[in-house]
Structures are given as C-alpha cells and as structure tokens.
Design a binder for these strands. Structure first.
Length: 492
RNA sequence: GUCCCCGUCGUCUAGAGGCCCAGGACGCUGGCCUUUCAAGCCGGUAACACGGGUUCGAAUCCCGUCGGGGACACCA
C-alpha cells in the first residue's frame, strides 16, 4: 500500500483539472439519487477535463454483496456514465474497493493514535446501546461520554486488539465550518460533535473515516454527494484537520423525494431503482434529463441533451430545495426523446422489448416506419412494443367488443364491405391510394369519412385508435389487412 | 428531543431590490386541426408559508413564527 504522503494540497497541484468521485455502497441496485450524483460528478469531470473516479464503499460487512457491485456497474453503464478510474479501470490510486485498502486505514489510524489524536475504546456495544437507550428515553441524542478517552492502557481483562479506535474531538469552544458550493457557509460548534468511531477492531473503517482517507489519497478536489451527508462533513473536516490535510471542496445536492415527500428510499419507493425504468421502457437520455432537472436548471430549458449538460452544468447552479419525483413528467420527457432520437436508434432499442413478447423483428422492413408512426403516441418503448406486437406483428387481432359493437354493425358493415372491395382492387398498396379509398367510399355513400375509416380501423386493429388509416393498412400489410377485414365481415 | 438544511403555481423550476399585480415546463383544462388516437398549435387554471423589520421600493436583505425534510450507529 502507498505510504501516506505529507500534507498536500491537491488543488494546488492540479488547479484546473477536478478529480471527482462517485462512491456508492454496494448494498443493492443503483439508486436514482446515486445516479444523479454520479451524473453531476461525471459532468463536472468531463466539462473541465478532469477525472471521474468510481469507488466502492463496501465496508458494510452484512449488506455489501458482489451482486450489488455488478448491479451498480450495470446501471452506470446503461446510463453511459463512464468512469476514468475504478473497478475494471485500475488507475494510479487502485484498489478502488475499500475492503482492499485496509492496510492504509490501519496505518493512518496508528499515526493518529501515536499523536494522541485518536484513542482506543474498550466499551462494548452492549454498554453503549444501554447508554443510548437511557439518552433516548430522556429525550435527547446519545453522545459518547468519553469513557475511554484518557486511558493509557487496556483496562483489566481487555485487550488492545479488541478495541475500536475513536477520533479524539478537540475539547474547547471551537467550531468547524465550510463553504458548501450549493448551500453556502455551514457551521457547527465542537460541542455538537463527539468522539466517533473510525476503525472497528477488525480493521474495517467506518464511513467518515474511510471516506476521508480515500478522498485525500485519491486526490479528490470536490466531493459532491447528497444532502443527507452534510452533517457527516463536520467530523470529516475535523479529521482532515487532525491529519494536517487540505480538505476538498464540498457540494451537497438536494434530495429526491417520493410522492409521500420522504427521501426516495429503496425500501419504500420502487421508482428509486434505475433499472426498473429501463425495464419499463424509459431511455437513458430521458432518465438523465429528468433527474438533472431535479435540483438544477438552465433558464427555461427542459429537454436537455448530454452535450448541452456538458456545456451548462456547474455545481454552483445546483439548487437547495428537495424535489419530488414526478412520473408524469418523466413519461413526457421520454416521449420527447423517443421523437428526437434517430428512428434507427429507437428501432434498435425496441427490439428487446419485442423479443420479450416473442417477436423477432430484427431486419424487418416495417420496423422503422412503425417507430415513426408509433412514437407520436407512445410514452415508452414498452408501450410501443405492446402496440407493435399486438397490432402489427402478430397475425390476427383481438377485437375490442365495445369498439366492434359501435363500428361493426348495421350500415357500417356495408361500408366496410365496399371499402374491402376497393382496397382489394388497388393496384398499389401505398398510403395515398389507401387513404383515397376512405375518401371515395365515403363520398359515394355521402357519409363522413369517419363512417368509413372507423369500421376499417376497428376491423384491422381491433380498437378505435391507430395512426392514419393508410399508414395503418400499409404497416399491417395487404394480405393480413384483408384477412382481418374478412374476419370482421364474417363476424357480422 | 437535539443539531443541520430548506420554504415561488398540484409538481419541477426562472427570478441574484425596481424589468414581476411573478415567467417557463409537466399535469389538469377549453379550443383549433382532424377519418380515430396521438402529436402540433392557440388559450385557461394555479404560487412568492405567515408576521415583523430594513429600504423611496422586497419574492429577492435581516429577525421571529410556522411548516417540511435530513442527520443524530462498531450503516453508508
């Protein structure tokens, strides 16, 4: 492991190239809030020619799993948030898994111990829990009482190897403060802080400790994370001070709230799962666009591409108020992107959704025209695939009974029969002549075009909504369309 | 309970003392277009939490109240 460098100021060394990181704990899927944090860090790095580091904070022995590591990697990859250093991209500060950096943590803890800036604590969890309960019952928050603070040697019956290492908070009246890029200046008096645990007896670091050691060693210049971490910034700052290190800058991002106005959590909010949206047919462009507008804006711009984000994003424009997840707006944005992206791209992305419905459409000439017709009336790829499969790719259709009752009875059937004959007689199965049939038949019968178009539509698609008749018939194909009309006719 | 942060339409937001009797977007809604549904276009609905200051003038600054959220672990 690298020996710790002397007190250094990373920013002094690389003033213009930011080094930022996303440091998730692999205890589940990629969280939507994490995705936004990752995005903003990514943008910052890319915009200013910096480096985006991915670090796995896998020190939660019970909840961290390799599957979660993979899930997070998959999520970031799907979103296209490429990291420069991290798992799979070993850089100068490897390894990027905290559980592989234990020697480093021990080393710095020993130094702090030797300098009297940390101490071994022999209190058992049971003792601490009991004290905590007493404190809570009294209506206050628990603060470590300093039991082992001045101990020079292990108490009788205890061993140094079994002790945790606590940070020794300076006593006295001071206070810590920092200038948050998003929130402004925040201050906390020493008296609100206590002697927190840095290292467990088994050498696994706790968040506040591992985070500081790694951020410094990895030469992070700006830490951007969720607002739930503002309070942990204070003990971290104390550590920087004790180690004689220059702290990075901080930016605390507003929280993303669920419909119930509470922080989006994996437990209570299914929409917190990035990949759920993928499965639902939301595209990365839309999800990223949606998520960055929560807590950040650029004038009145709503539909924002990655290139524009890259041009516009800055942490100093990040807001301060938490935002509520709005599924309707996500859907709207997704449709915007469905319409903006090249047809070929959307078609390609539609394939797996069709496949899930048992349809192999790769190479099908109708795919792109279908996308062109359907993206005007679909919010998601899933929705588009459902319509495509049910109406255009499968043979036969399911007639909606209500629609049939309204448009496939009495006079309508006569009109449909006339239309069928005109259609069958057409020399060319193309949009204009196809639409022309609706016109000629309706004129001949002196009825509105709807009287002719709707029966055809219901007969051919099974329900009352679809793209224009000509387009629909073209997409369904001559033989299949005539078959469906015949089936409808036979039914009446 | 303590500490921290926050408080503009239902939601996301613009607004950095006069340009604001507050603008955009989603949603909802009326209309146009129209062979249906969409899309598109035009219009409507709806907000500066409250109370004190400061100022010629406050959504914008200060204080208080209330409200919301977050953090208070040998989780991160």
């Amino acid at each position: 492991m690298t020996p710790h460098p002397l007190p250094a100021n990373p920013r002094a060394r690389m003033p213009s190239a930011p080094r930022v990181r996303f440091a998730p704990s692999p205890t589940g899927y990629l969280h939507i809030g994490g995705a936004r944090t990752a995005l903003m860090n990514y943008l910052q790095a890319r915009r200013y020619g910096g480096t985006f580091i991915l670090r796995m904070e896998d020190t939660d022995q019970v909840r961290s799993t390799p599957e979660s590591v993979q899930a997070i990697l998959d999520g970031l990859n799907w979103l296209g948030l490429e990291w420069d250093e991290g798992p799979g991209k070993e850089g100068p500060h490897a390894p990027y898994f905290q559980t592989q950096r234990l020697d480093t943590y021990r080393e710095h803890a020993d130094r702090l111990l030797a300098e009297g800036k940390a101490f071994r604590c022999y209190c058992t969890r049971e003792e601490l829990d009991a004290q905590r309960q007493v404190a809570e019952k009294a209506g206050g928050a628990f603060k470590y009482p300093g039991t082992c603070r001045e101990l020079k040697a292990p108490p009788p019956g205890k061993r140094a190897e079994d002790a945790v290492i606590r940070f020794k908070m300076p006593s006295g009246d001071g206070s810590v403060s920092f200038d948050d890029k998003a929130l402004g200046k925040i201050t906390k008096p020493y008296s609100d802080l206590d002697d927190w645990v840095m290292l467990r007896a088994d050498g696994i670091p706790l968040y506040n400790y591992g985070c500081v050691i790694d951020d410094h060693l990895m030469e992070i210049t700006l830490v951007a994370r969720g607002q739930e971490h503002v309070n942990s910034t204070f003990p971290q700052l104390m550590l920087y001070q004790a180690l004689g290190w220059q702290p990075p800058e901080f930016a605390h991002l507003p929280l993303i709230l669920g419909p119930d106005r509470e922080k989006l959590s994996k437990r209570k909010h299914p929409e917190a799962d990035v990949m759920l949206h993928k499965r639902n047919g939301i595209m990365p462009e839309a999800l990223l666009n949606f998520v960055i507008r929560l807590g950040w804006s650029h004038g009145n711009d709503e539909v924002i591409s990655r290139e524009q984000m890259l041009q516009w994003f800055d942490f100093s424009d990040v807001g301060t108020t938490s935002g509520v997840w709005d599924p309707k707006k996500l859907l709207w944005l997704n449709q915007q992107w469905l319409k903006l992206l090249p047809e070929a791209t959307v078609a390609e992305r539609l394939l797996p959704f069709l496949e899930a419905k048992g349809i192999q459409a790769r190479g099908d000439a109708r795919l792109e025209p279908l996308v062109r017709a359907l993206r005007e009336r679909s919010n998601t790829l899933e929705e588009m695939a459902t319509t495509a499969a049910n109406v255009y790719f499968r043979s036969g259709i399911t007639l909606d009974e209500k629609a049939a009752a309204k448009h496939l009875t009495g006079d309508s059937l006569g009109l449909l029969r006339q239309a069928r004959e005109a259609l069958a007689a057409l020399p060319e199965w193309k949009v204009e002549p196809l639409d022309g049939v609706v016109k000629t038949v309706s004129e001949a019968a002196s009825v509105g075009m709807g009287k002719v178009a709707q029966p055809i539509r219901v007969a051919v698609t099974g329900n009352t909504t679809s793209p224009g008749i000509g387009e629909t018939l073209l997409l369904v194909g001559r033989d299949e369309a005539l078959r469906r009309i015949d089936a409808a006719l036979a039914r009446g």
